[in-house]
Design a protein around this nucleic acid. Structure first.
Length: 715
DNA sequence: ATAAAGGTTCGA
DNA sequence: CGAACCTTTATT
């Protein structure tokens, strides 16, 4: 970038850098606060609103504020609020090297507003460039990004990186067609199965802003019901946004929207599309060409005009949690949008998270549920196989599969496909003493021993290998996987029914649908294909892996995955059966049998309230090297009602496991503290953490600590 | 962050 | 005294 841009003097001669510095210095000494901006060489400025307030695109916390720049006359027309700009920023801006001026800091930013005067007393630098006249950062999007940054103790620039996709000049050049007029209001369709379903859709159609937590009946109708809610919102002349956990769900809602609305009224925003296509879709939304959006989590920021409804499906799925700083959750971003835009809100799922239950409990949203008779009509029959059954079951030990499960599979295969849900790879079986069933524990830290490749044993917490285990209870020295090895069981099932095709769906290859003909469909949780006409039966073999995790959400998560699998099975009246291999006394198992995810979430919520766990209280995790962590906590001015839990050592990731963001670098010892505040102090906590982090970064010494509001994994 | 400015120490 | 190495400060 040449200096002409900086000074706005098209053909004017550039002054040597030394002179510029001198001019600047003299201005400084005079210390005259000026009302009007003045560039260093007094180049021509925009006549009206010559000051541009710019958000400099750096994620650094202590620079999380605006800077004012002068608007050169020739950029006046393009320099409108919301456009991308380039500005000189930073101290060493006129270093000379090899006789050439080095731009110390020409960096990107967003023009936030145009002003008459600046409250900055010094001389303003000029905008270097308006990258494009496309206003990509609307006032609404800026307001949302600000709220998200505050909520998560992050910087505005970080959030904007998530909210505004990278520019593609080609996509911007293409003109957008005129928006279509609002469609007619749709009927309520199958929403009538829910107690206030029709009223919800009608409220949206008539311009209202109803807020609901929707416990969807099992089966495939949810995507069309979601599309109807969107269509109702569009018919009121407003826009709608739907966020779903993965591309498959997005494709289903997309198809349903096409069915209900026809082509051209909605956009599909997913990660699958290339950057250019993605930006083109985003632009269509930003320009108001399309008023409805369905997409995966990045779509949570989609700049839908005049929002009437935000919706999220299956908020318990962890892909709703953004991976990049400040790691906002789609549910919370949509909650913020609903509050800021005063629009309708729909949180739907076959299961129910504790957070969803809380929205109902505190009166913010109304429950949208079906009566028990509708549930009975739609849900499959659920049967359990617990440890006791397994012990009693001679056949099970011989065949490594409970008789009941065997029968369910055999009967199911007579009528259609059978789903077998197996644990994801990476869920290493928990080991127990073969003789007395006592769990095998690490002798150093008492963590669970896990089977590794090649039959070796290791600790799941501290990672130490164990080569010479014996049972401290009974002296036994043989180990077994605590429950039937599921993956192998699936293989054995395949051998047992040689005439039946076996299809697998998992991380490597996810199947979207399978035909309604008899087949064994082996899938990991979340990758289950939809079966045409529904599965005849499902066998859930991952109970031990799901419930054995030392995680606050283990129960809720297990139930969610079982319900999701069961929701693909035919109703009980049509012969649909689910067999779950898990202890029938456990709460999530009972909730599955009764098909009562809401009741489960409500009980979990009560328990969390009692224990002071999220979401009833708000938590943040702070992690880092012990000294840095201690220093951080000492300087942070946390709210008076904040409570510190820990520190505890941050566990080293298991060898081979993917390194999670924020895990300590290899070989380093980190500690973690949880900070807990009661409801209502969440904002103060985030502000305090942000301030402390900013101070830390500004000082530049001390290593960074990692701050995460709403950590997903609290032991 | 990043770079410049300002201050310190250490060797000739 | 200057070079080398720090700490502090500002960034429009």
């Amino acid at each position: 970038m040449s200096s002409e841009d900086e000074h706005g003097g098209g053909g004017a001669e550039a002054a040597p850098p030394e002179q510029l510095a001198l001019i600047r210095e003299s201005v400084r000494e005079a210390k005259v606060p000026r009302a009007k901006p003045r560039t260093w060489r007094g180049a021509a400025l925009a006549e009206r609103l010559p000051v541009a307030r710019v958000l400099v695109d750096k994620g650094v916390l202590h620079l999380d504020r605006y800077f004012d720049y002068a608007v050169p006359a020739e950029l006046d027309a393009d320099a409108r609020p919301g456009v991308r700009v380039r500005v000189r920023f930073g101290a060493g801006r006129h270093r000379v090297r090899d006789g050439r001026r080095e731009g110390g800091g020409l960096i990107d930013g967003f023009l936030v507003e145009r002003l008459d005067e600046s409250d900055y007393a010094g001389p303003l630098a000029a905008l270097a460039q308006v990258v494009s006249p496309e206003p990509v950062l609307s006032a609404e999007l800026l307001r949302l990004a600000r709220a998200v940054a505050d909520r998560y103790a992050g910087s505005l620039a970080d959030v904007l990186q998530l909210a505004v996709p990278p520019r593609s000049a080609r996509a911007e050049k293409r003109p957008s067609p005129d928006p279509l007029p609002p469609p007619p209001a749709p009927g309520a369709g199958t929403w009538t199965r829910y107690e206030h379903g029709a009223a919800f859709v009608e409220a949206l159609a008539s311009g209202g802003a109803p807020r609901a937590v929707w416990n969807a009946l099992p089966g495939p109708e949810w995507s069309r019901e979601t599309a109807l809610a969107v269509a109702a919102t569009l018919s009121s002349g407003r826009g709608a946004l739907v966020v779903v956990p993965d591309g498959r769900a997005a494709a289903r809602v997309d198809a349903a929207l096409t069915e209900v609305l026809g082509e051209g009224r909605h956009a599909l925003l997913t990660a699958d599309a290339g950057p250019e296509k993605r930006y083109a879709q985003w632009l269509a939304v930003s320009r108001g060409t399309v008023r409805a959006v369905v997409g995966t989590r990045a779509a949570m920021f989609a700049p839908v005009r005049d929002l009437g409804l935000v919706a999220i499906w299956d908020d318990g799925d962890d892909s709703h949690s953004e991976q990049h700083a400040p790691q906002p959750h789609a549910r919370d971003v949509l909650l913020l949008r609903a509050a800021l835009d005063k629009c309708g809100f729909l949180l739907g799922g076959w299961s129910c998270t504790v957070e969803a239950a809380q929205l109902v409990e505190n009166g913010w949203a109304r429950p949208l549920v079906a009566g028990r008779d509708q549930v009975r009509r739609a849900a499959p029959l659920v049967r359990t196989v617990g440890d006791g059954d397994l012990a009693r079951d001679e056949a099970a030990r011989a065949a490594r599969l409970p008789t009941l499960a065997w029968q369910a599979v055999r009967d199911g295969l007579r009528h259609g496909p059978v789903l077998v849900q197996v644990p994801r790879r990476g869920y290493v079986p928990r080991m127990a003493c073969d003789r007395c069933r006592a769990p095998a524990r690490c002798r150093h830290c008492a963590g669970p021993l896990e089977a590794r490749d090649a039959g070796a044993l290791g600790c799941g917490w501290c990672g130490r290998a164990e080569s010479d285990w014996h049972c401290p209870e009974c002296g036994g020295f043989r180990l077994r996987a605590q429950v039937v090895g599921a993956r192998r069981t699936a293989e054995e099932l395949g051998r047992a029914f040689p005439a039946v095709p076996v299809r697998t769906s998992g991380r490597e290859q996810v199947l979207d649908t399978v035909p309604g003909t008899p087949a064994l469909v082996v899938s990991t949780p979340g990758a289950e294909p939809v079966a045409e006409g529904g599965y005849a039966a499902a066998l859930l073999l991952d109970g031990w892996a799901m419930l054995g995790r030392p995680d606050l959400r283990a129960g809720e998560d297990a139930l969610r995955r079982w319900i999701a699998a069961g929701s693909l099975v035919r109703p009980q009246d049509a012969g649909g059966t689910v067999v779950v291999v898990a202890e029938p006394t456990l709460r999530p198992v009972q909730a599955l049998v009764r098909w009562d995810p809401v009741g489960h979430a409500v009980r979990e919520l009560a328990e969390r309230a009692e224990l002071g766990f999220p979401p009833v209280s708000r938590m943040a995790a702070v992690a880092g090297p012990p000294e840095a962590l201690a220093e951080f906590l000492a300087t942070a001015e946390l709210p008076p009602d904040a409570e510190l839990l820990g520190p505890v050592p941050v566990l080293v990731a298991r060898a081979g496991a993917p390194r999670r963001a924020g895990a300590p670098p290899p070989g380093e010892h980190w500690e973690r503290v949880l900070v807990r505040v009661p409801p209502g102090s969440g904002g103060a906590l985030a502000a305090a953490l942000k301030a402390a982090q900013a101070a830390r970064m500004a000082r530049g010494n001390g290593e960074a600590v990692r701050v995460r509001v709403d950590p997903p994994d609290i032991g």
